[in-house]
Write a protein that binds this DNA or RNA. Structure first.
Lengths: 207, 207
DNA sequence: AATGCAATACTACTAAAGTAGTATATTCAG
DNA sequence: CTGAATATACTACTTTAGTAGTATTGCATT
């Protein structure tokens, strides 16, 4: 049984070296290379690939775009992100989009092949820092320590801020003057060390 | 700097062997052992532990119950699940509750110590099958149809808006004039039928 | 009793966001 | 080839948000 592998990678020598490694290894076949997202998106649905390695930064569209467009069309294909550096923000986004794991280009050949087998067999190879981000994000997010810093009234106001309400609307809902709302928000921003609504919400609700 | 480790484990010899291994290793200190969930829940909040290893099946309450009760009281403590077999359903649940990683009791001593250091440094040690379950479960966050409505450029700008950046900052980052950013945002708001940043972000990113 | 935090509220100001109309070049599908 | 969508950019204006200083009341802890 041979694992059918595809590669999406804009740099020619990396692409070809990967092919030589993978296609030359027992149990793997790698005949389909793509230098850009557009080609990959057009052709991959016509293939029955088991695993596709993709870079994130390509010429135009990104590897994440590829996954987004391909994951529904190729439900049995596993996408593995293959980045040059530890771009954890993008990797995280890619996993959210549908990638099943990731590896870096500096990964040892044997480890790389292991990862391909791993994802093929239903695993998600990734380093533990990425894993932590993933775990943290899917965890029933209790409450950020920042939320704890706020008083009861302030938390209430933050909740209303998060709905996009204007100061006037918040004031009306809580039977306060707009100026009081303004004062509360000033205090909230000070406690959180921010100076805009969006920053405050990010601090309180994100991770 | 020494990593302070605690152990919750009902089987005496496993508990003590773990202690001998950990406490006897350079850079680790392990003085607090608990044979059941109740003791752990009472005493751990009074300690400043960096990492707590816990079994899932204990006498009465489970290790998951421990994590549930302790995670808020001990925000700086990392919980590591330590199971005898690959009980992936429970492990998964534990991660959802607040565990930061897991290892099995058959793990090699050196690997076990590595995992403790790993979780202490912000990683999430786990095998790739558990990782897959985690990734798959948090992936079920499909991009909202509203995001699809936006052009590539507009999505980029929405991403920057979500970070709380000002128009001027967005303009600088994208090498645009502030007025162009303003126009894009006007168009975004029109497409989404909103009239503020927070409303737009809610439409695009919430569920 | 005194200190401090929480909640309320005001004036006054500046900065940023949002609204509106318009324009031009490019690209892409029909 | 044309029309629609996209990306760029301007003027002009209004509204909302954010900053700063201050003050009063009540409640809780020291």
């Amino acid at each position: 049984m041979t694992i059918q592998v595809g590669i999406i990678e804009d740099e020619k020598h990396i692409r070809e070296n990967l092919q030589i490694l993978i296609d030359g290894s027992e149990g793997f076949s790698c005949k389909h290379l793509f230098a850009n997202a557009e080609d990959a998106i057009n052709i991959i649905p016509t293939l029955q690939l088991d695993v596709v390695l993709t870079d994130i930064q390509l010429g135009g569209k990104t590897g994440i775009d590829c996954i987004l467009e391909l994951k529904d069309k190729c439900p049995s294909t596993n996408f593995l992100i293959c980045t040059s550096f530890d771009d954890s923000e993008h990797v995280f986004k890619a996993l959210k989009t549908g990638a099943m794991g990731y590896l870096t280009k500096t990964t040892q050949p044997s480890k790389l092949l292991d990862s391909i087998v791993d994802v093929y067999r239903g695993g998600s190879p990734m380093n533990s820092h990425i894993a932590r981000k993933v775990v943290s994000s899917f965890m029933e997010t209790p409450v950020s320590p920042n939320y704890e810093k706020l008083s009861e009234r302030e938390r209430l106001i933050v909740d209303l801020l998060s709905k996009g309400m204007r100061y006037k609307e918040i004031a009306d809902q809580l039977f306060l003057s707009t100026e009081t709302v303004r004062t509360h928000i000033r205090n909230i921003y000070h406690k959180l060390q921010v100076n805009s609504r969006t920053e405050a919400l990010n601090k309180v609700f994100k991770k």
